[in-house]
Simulated scan of single mutants.
Amino acid sequence: MKQFALSTCIRRVWIMSGWLRQEAAIAAGMLVVQRDQVERREDEEDLKVEHQVAATGDEVGVDSHGRLRRVRMLDDYILPFECGL
């Protein structure tokens, strides 16, 4: 059976569409794995913060830069430990 130009073009498009489907599936899988790794890192960081809070035994707050700071609780106000009365 002789192949015509149209059937050759259709075959090439079919093959390329298969490659594109595979690439899309691989890219989607990579995004899922990357998102899972980011969530695990965030969970590990949260656990570290919880361990640090438990180790200090004092009241601990977080400043605007995300660092832990010792604080003193006064009724409705939270003051940094350095500003003790």
Rank of each mutant, 00 (worst) to 15 (best):
A5Y: 03
E59C: 05
D76E: 10
S17R: 12
R40K: 10
V60Y: 06
F4L: 09
R12A: 13
D76H: 12
T56H: 13
R40F: 02
S64G: 01
C9I: 12
R69Y: 03
A28P: 00
C83V: 07
R12L: 12
V38H: 07
E45Q: 12
V53S: 01
F4T: 13
R69V: 15
F4G: 08
L79T: 07
A5M: 05
G29I: 05
D76I: 07
V38W: 05
D76S: 13
R72A: 04
L68G: 12
Q52Y: 13
R67D: 13
S17W: 04
V32I: 15
R72V: 14
R72M: 06
E50T: 07
K2I: 04
L6F: 08
L47W: 04
Q34M: 09
M73C: 05
R70V: 15
D58M: 04
R69F: 08
R11F: 09
L68D: 02
I26A: 11
W14Y: 10
E59I: 02
L74C: 04
R72L: 09
V53M: 11
D75M: 14
Q37E: 05
A55T: 13
L20V: 09
A27M: 10
T8Y: 00
D36W: 11
Q34N: 09
R67G: 01
V32K: 12
L79N: 02
E23W: 14
W19S: 04
V33S: 13
R41W: 02
M1N: 07
A5D: 04
D46S: 11
G84S: 08
E23G: 12
R11Y: 11
D36I: 07
A24P: 00
I15H: 09
H51R: 14
V71D: 01
L47F: 02
G18F: 07
R40L: 10
W19R: 06
H65D: 14
F81I: 11
D36K: 15
G18Y: 07
L85E: 12
V49E: 01
D76T: 14
C9W: 03
V71S: 00
K48H: 04
D43Y: 02
I26Y: 08
E42Q: 14
A55L: 15
H51E: 11
A5N: 08
L47K: 08
C83W: 08
R12F: 04
D46C: 08
D63A: 03
A54L: 13
K48W: 09
M16E: 11
R12P: 00
M73R: 14
R21Y: 05
R35M: 08
I26D: 07
L79W: 09
V53R: 15
G29K: 14
G18M: 10
L31P: 00
F4C: 03
L68E: 03
A5T: 11
Q34C: 06
D63H: 03
